[in-house]
Amino acid sequence: MSFAIATTLDQALAAIADGARPIAGGSDLVVGARHGKAPLPESLVAIDRIAELAEIKAGGDVTRIGAVVNHARLMTDPTVVGNYTALADAAALVGSPATRNVGTLGGNIMNGSPAMDTGAPLVVMGAQVELQSTGGTRTLSIAHLWDAPGSNTAAAGELCTAVLLPPPGDRCGSAYVRLEYRRAMEIAVVGAAAAVVLDEAGAIVNARVALAAVAPTIIEVDGIEDLVAGRALDDDGRAAVADAASSQASPISDMRASDAYRRHTVGVMARRALDAAVRRALGEEIAVPVNRALGIGAA
């Protein structure tokens, strides 16, 4: 087994081209190996010391979050908390302080768990993923990154280097909430993210909802705008969104929950995420994470 520490992106890409697996926090790779999920790869290259992968750059027509930015930073960074709040909500719920200080955004999305917390927020905020290899750079919509549980569509040799988000606009709000049974070291039973844009009168111009842990990958709920756009969020809109989320979910039964319970509660979470996103867009301060601020789940 070999282990190399890259200090530049070029070193990392070269190692990955030679078959090395990238490792940053190791909170999936190492824990998975210890639990017998998959043995550690023969060759590892550490990417956590590559400075450019740890940057958050805002301004211009894109906000760029480096792949090894960890969850502890996501939940406190003013750019993320101020403009991409759903992502901060999600990051703040991951694991424990120790997990959040080693686990990275790139690791979370590339691991491809359908129960990941950061995925649904990135979908509703229209994130792109930047993949680099020795052959060049490409970006793709994050919704196209996942194809099955624990799997991604990156080619061999490609490294996730950043997540790209559209610049913040006026009267935008987002939120992520999840069903959880305890307040730390928890995994989403189901989760939902919402992002909205309002007009000056408070009517919904644009709304998106995505769901975690109710399908083989993170899924976006179709037709949300038809249900809520053109007016302020009302009880009919909330109920319609909950119904849409429940009906489009295709959950499994496992130890954490039955399919029926997941289907019901993901509607509840979708409704609450949308509600919190609208309230934030209207200027209300709801602290990160919404789960704790509004007493959702084990909050």
Binding site: H35, R182, R183, A184, M185, M255
Partner: peptide
């Protein structure tokens, strides 16, 4: 037993 681990056998945490 199917949940013989601390992720799926859910003890309370200090945060709770």
């Amino acid at each position: 037993q199917l949940n013989a681990g601390l992720l799926e056998y859910k003890l309370q945490t200090a945060a709770d």
